[in-house]
Computed example of a mutant assay.
Amino acid sequence: MLKGFKEFILRGNVVELAVAVVIGAAFTGVVNAIVGAVINPAIGALFDAESLAEAFPVVIPTTSGGEATIFFGAVIAAILQFVIVAAVVYFALVLPINTLKRHAEERRKAGEPAVSEDTPPTEAELLAEIRDLLAAQRGGASPSGSSPSS
C-alpha cells in the first residue's frame, strides 16, 4: 500500500499539479489585494461608496418590519476579479503556450525539428527507447518505428 502511495506522489504530473495549486493560490492572493485595495475603492468612489462591494445598495423591507440590504456592487466586484484572473492566466500562460505550439508545428511542417536538438528527450521518448532496448535484449523484434503510445 505504501509503495503505491509513494509511486503516486512521486509522479511528475502530481508534483507539477501541486506546484500549480500553490502558485495559483499565491497569485489569487495578489489579485485579491489589487482588486480589493486599489480597483474596488477607485470604482466605489465613482458611485459614492467606500468600495465597489458597498456600491449599488438595494434596501428591501422584511416581514418583521426591518430592512435587508443587497449590495450588487459585491457581485460586480467578484465578476471583475474573475475577469482579471482569467485575463492574466490567458495572457501569461495560454497565449504563450499556444504560440510555442504553433511555431513548433510550423517548424515540423517545414521539415525542421519541432524543438532544438539540444532539448532533452521527453518522458515518452525515454520510455520508448527503454522499451526498444529491452526488446532487443530479449532477442525480440524491435518496435522502433512505433509510437510510444502504442
Rank of each mutant, 00 (worst) to 15 (best):
K109F: 05
E106F: 03
A104K: 09
L2E: 06
S150E: 15
A25E: 10
V89Q: 14
G24R: 05
E123H: 10
L80H: 01
T119I: 06
V83D: 12
G36I: 08
E105Y: 05
S146Y: 06
A18C: 05
S142L: 04
V35E: 01
L100C: 07
H103L: 12
G29I: 13
E50Q: 09
T69I: 11
V89F: 14
V89R: 15
L17Y: 07
T122V: 03
E125M: 04
R138P: 02
V58R: 08
I43W: 03
L127T: 06
A45Y: 04
L126E: 03
E67M: 07
A87R: 15
F8P: 13
I60F: 11
P143Q: 05
S144M: 02
N13G: 08
E123W: 06
G24Y: 03
R108I: 04
A141Y: 02
S116I: 01
A104M: 03
F5V: 08
F8W: 14
L52A: 02
A42R: 04
A25W: 05
E117C: 05
G24H: 13
L93P: 00
V59W: 01
L46G: 14
G66Q: 09
E7V: 14
V58T: 07
F56R: 03
K3G: 14
Y90D: 15
K109I: 03
V85G: 07
A86E: 15
A74P: 02
